[in-house]
Write a protein that binds this DNA or RNA. Sequence first.
DNA 1: GCTCTGCGGAGAGGA
Length: 895
Amino acid sequence: MSGDRVRGVVVDIEEAKTVTTQYGESDLCEVTIRPDRGAGEPTTVTLWGKWTENAAVIETGMEIAVYNPDEREYQGEQQYSVGGDATLVVQPDFLVDVTDIRAWVQCPRMYYLRKLDGAEHAYPLVKGTVVHEVFGDLLRGRDLDTAIEEQVDAAGLDIGLLGREADEVAGDVRDHASAIQGWLQQGTLTETDQWRSEMTLISERFGMKGRADAVRRGMPVELKTGKNTKREPRFQDKIQATAYALMLGERAADASSAVEAAPDTGTLLYTKNAAVDRNEESGDLSPAKEFSIGSGLLNYVVRTRNAIAAMEYDCSVPTGYEANAKCEYCFEQDTCMAVSGRLDQESKAGQVGRAVPDEEREYFERFYEAIEAERRAVHREYAKLWEQTPEERADNDRALIGLEPTGRRELDGGRWELRATGTGAVSKIREGNLVLASDGDPVTGDAELARVERLGEEIVVTADEPLELRRLDVYPSELTTDRLQNALHDAVLLQSPEQKDVLFGRREPEFAAVDETFIDNNDAQNEAVQLAVGAEDFALVHGPPGTGKTYTLARMVRALVERGDRVLLSAFTNRAVDNLIEALEDQGYTDIVRVGTESGVREDMQEYRLETSGDPSACASRLQNAQVVAATTATCGGSTLQTQEFDVAVVDEAGQLTEPGTLAATTLADRFVLVGDHQQLPPVVQSEDETLSTSLFERLIDAHPEAGVMLDRQYRMAQHIQAFASREFYDGQLRPATGEVAAQRLDDLDGVSTASLPKPLRDRVAFVDPDGSQRGNTNPDEADRIAEIVASYREAGVRADDIGVIAPYRAQVAEISKRLPDVTVDTVDRFQGSSKEVIVISFVATGTLDSPIFEDYRRINVALTRAKKALVLVGDGDALATDEVYGRMVEWARG
DNA sequence: GCTCTGCGGAGAGGA
């Protein structure tokens, strides 16, 4: 990249020493790096002065980057030093949040505790959020009273769950907001003032990200909904604003020094100052406090950021000694001591309580590290945002570039609708996603977080501010990893020892005998409901494809409700959660509250969705009084459901969930039921860590087979179609439920006659080898052949709606979709959970099966078991024959 | 070297 930067992997670190220079005594530490990710020639980097503090936390193997180093040649070797204008960045790929830097400055333990237990539901936080929203509204020129009314209304559920009234909160908010308004009206807000609210900042250079409350004339303004009558702003508040200043400087400066280009003043607005009783308090009561931002403060921010990134390198746990925290004044002291006591961690505050057993501590550490590995994988996704060369862009499927803006309009409430025409390129972006919309440069250009409303010929997004819509990027989110970390904490530190005994194999799960018959025509289903109803700890239901899993689940939920249990219904995907509600609806049960976002919940399930705005007590009591609450596991890990307790958690598609993902739901209840199939696709995990790729469902069913029931009769597939999957994946246990299911054929469908079909397609299972060749992740000849096959079925009278095409890669899905616009074409992964009368599978690969996509046989199990009456496999027979399982599959299909 | 869904994005404050 630019010449003013050196970056490499640390291979050696010398002891720090003090030397005498022409300017007096100075500390230095020499670090040897190898550029080009460790492949280049060793190079010496000398850290001077305060940068040696970072040297103490750098380890070999870490990556460091130095900007604007002093360069010199010494004995034929190029040497670099960090002092003066230079900046050191440790592990630049790790993106540190600005609020995490703020927390670390208060106390490094605070940074760590926030990560474990972040789903707190507290009034100061809710009030603070509302005040911030109102502040944004004021900057956009809205009327104060309207803003307060609307923002209090928008926070209805949160307010209600805290047992507060809207009027009371509006009064509190007005105290704060009028202070802001007064300050804004003191002539500060003039025509020439350039304000921008809520600015998302992401820095590649510093490995930092955050969202500034506001920027005025290029300078950061932070709003604090608290009181500070001291002359100076609080140190951590200054650090927060300084971090935003640093990133604003980077945007202004481009390749030269961001530190020099950073704004020199920051403003902190303490909104409670004006509300303080002036007779009691003394000191500075004006809400606004300005402070100057110099290179010392800016570099302090970078060093703190580096300390965090270095600690995360090997997932070490901060003790509190890293900084000068004063535990006796800390309001997190109790939590801090309790956590260190339970996990036997060293901490400055000390420990209280007894440590959890060793196996639990090991479990906690193993999963903590696995989740953090996942977080680092999310951070690597951000790198796609700064890929700018055409080659890099060419295979970036996480962005839509080259859009042509076609218009914009302001919506009610100050938001904007932005429109553009697309290029028809394939990407991961889907409707409802949160994306980074930009003028073409998401990092240093004009960029805003936006919601994708429509994604067709015309692309429509909504955002807080208007901009020229030329590019959309996936916005990677750490939300999932944050919630997994919360779930892990709750499971190990807050659950009772009795609950944990069964999870850690110290006790067998117990069951009460249940004689009642719930389902009279399917023994396994009935047994599953009995087991679930009688479970005192947990029950497991193994449901292979088409076995009536959802029906059984709905019956089970009704049985639990009849006993008086309050039930939490959860699954990984919104689609699965909605399917469960539909099944309950089919059985006549509708006392359900669905928690989730508007875009996540299916159109016809919106009536069950919990409204989060409006009258606080109405919102809250609807949730509190619901006998059945349904939500995705990600939502279960959030703060709303943390306020709720359940007798039983019923989790569907549990085979697709990571262990902490499952815990997010189960920790909210006394007992749980997991329903799933570990022979279908496992959880999607980005990092290579194995820990997360085994589901809790699979672990428990292996450990406690007696706690599980397998549904063994399937209602979906004709005998011949299910035969291979039954043999390969279910020990031959899976059988058609009835003779009718076994014997079903396409001719049973209205208006279908298979007599005219070409020979192989007349069989229920067929194999076709189109002699194509793989190009990248597509196979155009195979796509052509699939289009012909589908056309044959259509001519035989099969409706387009009854046909599905499955391919392993998204690129091939797009290739086939072009030829078959009316037919559902999708990847295996996205087809899981649904079925069609006719399924055509494209294997793409020719010659060999060298893609990892073929390594997991569970993927083929899913693909094959989507078909009811006809299944066509299209691929290179020779390539498939190179693998034993695929070879057997081809033999079976050729019949 | 491939699959890819979730979440208000992050931050909201107490002494």
